[in-house]
Computed example of a mutant assay.
Amino acid sequence: MADVAGSVTESTTDRAVVTISGLTRRYGERAVLDAIDLEIAPGEFVALIGRSGSGKSTLLRALARLDPDVDGDGRLEVPENRSVMFQDSRLLPWARVLDNVVLGLDSPDAAARGRAALADVGLAGRERAWPRMLSGGEQQRVALARSLVREPALLLADEPFGALDALTRIRMHVLLADLCARHRPAVLLVTHDVDEAITLADRVLVLDEGRIRVDLPVGLAKPRDHEHPDFLNIRRTLLEGLGITRKDGRDVAAP
């Protein structure tokens, strides 16, 4: 695989599923991504956090190949087999659940794979349902099934649980962790929720002003206890990376 400055290529390396070197994205004079360097290993779950406007979704869109205007001397290598989950399920309202799952899947066993994917997310028997008949959490389960039915090497998730209620969100955390352990895609999860990042990820990145300021491994056994001292220490480090400190028993954001 050639190393060509300014190129965007499909990854063929066994060493890393994603390789980013010097990646830049500008809007006018502002560098939203400023010479980003990053590697994601096969099967690694990486969470990306940061303040609003820090470039999180811009980086995810670049990895999804949805943004042709990344530039500079950057290199972006991503697998051809990748999928994306968004905050809303983006289901086609005129297509039944199974048809949404296998949309674009060119395979003679597409229907069987779609049914198996729906069973994996707890929706066996709902293949003929219309999206409007599902709750918000069920719609996101369908979106997850659609993402995993292709057995992607890379799963990109842009705040997929942000619109869910707290209980449904916890259930989706358990489901996503279980399915990722079974299917083993590399994952980049964009989230505003520090606890969500620590709960799910092998590694958490803090993006600030277009640069990765913190790159922190999470060496905790799963499932993770939110009250464990190591969990709380990691949380404190990440909050500090976001400019939030504890004062008088409460979190205080830097000006």
Rank of each mutant, 00 (worst) to 15 (best):
residue 90 R to P: 13
residue 90 R to V: 12
residue 90 R to A: 15
residue 90 R to H: 15
residue 90 R to I: 09
residue 92 L to W: 14
residue 93 P to R: 02
residue 93 P to M: 09
residue 94 W to G: 01
residue 94 W to N: 05
residue 94 W to V: 01
residue 94 W to M: 02
residue 95 A to T: 01
residue 95 A to L: 06
residue 96 R to K: 05
residue 97 V to K: 04
residue 98 L to P: 07
residue 99 D to P: 02
residue 99 D to M: 00
residue 100 N to V: 01
residue 100 N to C: 04
residue 100 N to L: 01
residue 100 N to Q: 02
residue 101 V to Q: 06
residue 101 V to P: 05
residue 101 V to N: 07
residue 102 V to I: 13
residue 102 V to M: 10
residue 102 V to D: 11
residue 102 V to K: 09
residue 103 L to A: 09
residue 103 L to N: 06
residue 104 G to R: 07
residue 104 G to M: 08
residue 105 L to E: 04
residue 106 D to I: 05
residue 106 D to T: 06
residue 107 S to R: 15
residue 108 P to W: 14
residue 108 P to G: 14
residue 109 D to E: 06
residue 110 A to W: 08
residue 110 A to E: 04
residue 112 A to L: 09
residue 112 A to C: 08
residue 112 A to K: 10
residue 112 A to M: 08
residue 113 R to L: 04
residue 113 R to E: 01
residue 114 G to W: 03
residue 114 G to I: 04
residue 115 R to Q: 12
residue 115 R to N: 10
residue 116 A to D: 13
residue 116 A to R: 14
residue 116 A to K: 14
residue 117 A to P: 10
residue 117 A to Y: 11
residue 117 A to G: 14
residue 118 L to A: 14
residue 118 L to W: 13
residue 118 L to Q: 14
residue 118 L to S: 15
residue 118 L to I: 11
residue 119 A to T: 06
residue 119 A to P: 05
residue 120 D to L: 06
residue 121 V to I: 09
residue 121 V to M: 12
residue 121 V to E: 09
residue 121 V to L: 09
residue 121 V to G: 12
residue 122 G to T: 10
residue 123 L to H: 09
residue 123 L to V: 10
residue 124 A to K: 05
residue 124 A to S: 11
residue 124 A to R: 03
residue 124 A to W: 00
residue 124 A to F: 04
residue 125 G to W: 01
residue 125 G to C: 13
residue 125 G to H: 03
residue 126 R to T: 14
residue 127 E to F: 03
residue 128 R to Y: 03
residue 129 A to L: 00
residue 129 A to D: 11
residue 129 A to Q: 00
residue 130 W to V: 02
residue 130 W to I: 00
residue 131 P to R: 01
residue 131 P to L: 00
residue 131 P to D: 00
